[in-house]
Amino acid sequence: MKASFKARYETDKAAAAATVAVNAGDIRLRASMTDATIVSGPNLNGLALAVEKPGFFIVDYNVPKKDFRFQFMNTIRVSEKPLNLTYMHSRGDNRTSLDGTLVFDSANKVSANHVLGSGNCKLKYTYVHGGLTTFEPSYDFSKNSWDFAISRRVYGDDVFRAAYQTSSKNLGLEWSRNSKLNGSFKISASLNLADERKMPKLTAESAWDFEM
């Protein structure tokens, strides 16, 4: 049995979440809850249950909303290159999306996301330079705009990332660490350059994993 706990703090609020997962052969059973589940006494708010087979399928059930979400994964080969496909359907809002990632080699891949029945389609190219620096330009067809992101791995576990959305003029900076020994954290700041006040929004997250 594995458990994880995540705490999140924003400039205007704080929140926490916990997840417990149990392996049953090839199947994993998972339950997650937020602080809304216990802050006002035991209730079903923020509670979600899931059954998953890693790499094949995930079935999520949002208890308070009584909503199922189905996710199926598969990999096919195109010209000897792996194409990773993910199909997602949410019954509550009747929303279906398809993700695809074509991996050319360890440094180059192209991914696309499309919401079926809409003009919402995003295309992203990822290039990893020297195994440390990642460039990610992407294009949103529905907004007719480009987004850009660059990240750099330092000291093994630390990653610094900067992203800019041209449609909203939103600039984001992030520092994250994922360590098996010391847990993980993420500190991020976002700033809307179109806002006259130009007040950044700060967010801090920390997570711990436990073997039970």
Rank of each mutant, 00 (worst) to 15 (best):
H89E: 02
K109N: 15
I187Y: 07
L123C: 04
T11F: 07
S138F: 11
F68R: 05
T133W: 02
S90L: 06
G46E: 01
L44Q: 02
I76W: 01
F68I: 08
F104R: 10
D195S: 15
D195L: 09
N192G: 02
A14D: 05
K169V: 05
A17G: 12
F135W: 11
D60Y: 04
T11K: 12
M1C: 07
G46I: 04
F104P: 09
Y139T: 06
A24L: 11
V20S: 04
D158K: 09
D67I: 00
H89L: 14
V115N: 09
N108T: 14
M1S: 11
N94R: 11
L191K: 09
G46W: 01
S138K: 10
I58E: 10
V154G: 07
N170A: 09
D35H: 14
V51F: 03
D157V: 15
G55Y: 04
W208G: 02
S4E: 11
L49Y: 01
G25R: 09
A189T: 10
R69E: 08
G92R: 13
Q71L: 13
S79F: 14
M73W: 00
N62L: 08
R28E: 14
L123E: 00
T203W: 01
T86Q: 12
L29N: 04
M212R: 01
L116M: 12
L83H: 10
N43L: 04
Y125Q: 05
L29S: 04
G25M: 09
K186S: 14
N182R: 07
N178F: 05
K143G: 03
T75W: 01
V110W: 12
E52M: 11
M73R: 04
N45H: 05
A3D: 01
K198S: 14
S190T: 13
A149V: 05
S142F: 09
S79V: 12
F210Q: 02
V115D: 01
N94G: 06
K2E: 05
S190A: 10
F70D: 06
A7W: 07
K6V: 08
K143T: 10
V103E: 13
F160S: 01
A107D: 15
S145W: 09
P64E: 03
G156Y: 07
A48S: 03
N62K: 06
M1A: 13
R8T: 15
S106D: 13
D209Q: 13
L193S: 02
F57H: 09
S176M: 14
A36L: 13
S168L: 08
M199G: 11
K13L: 00
P137E: 08
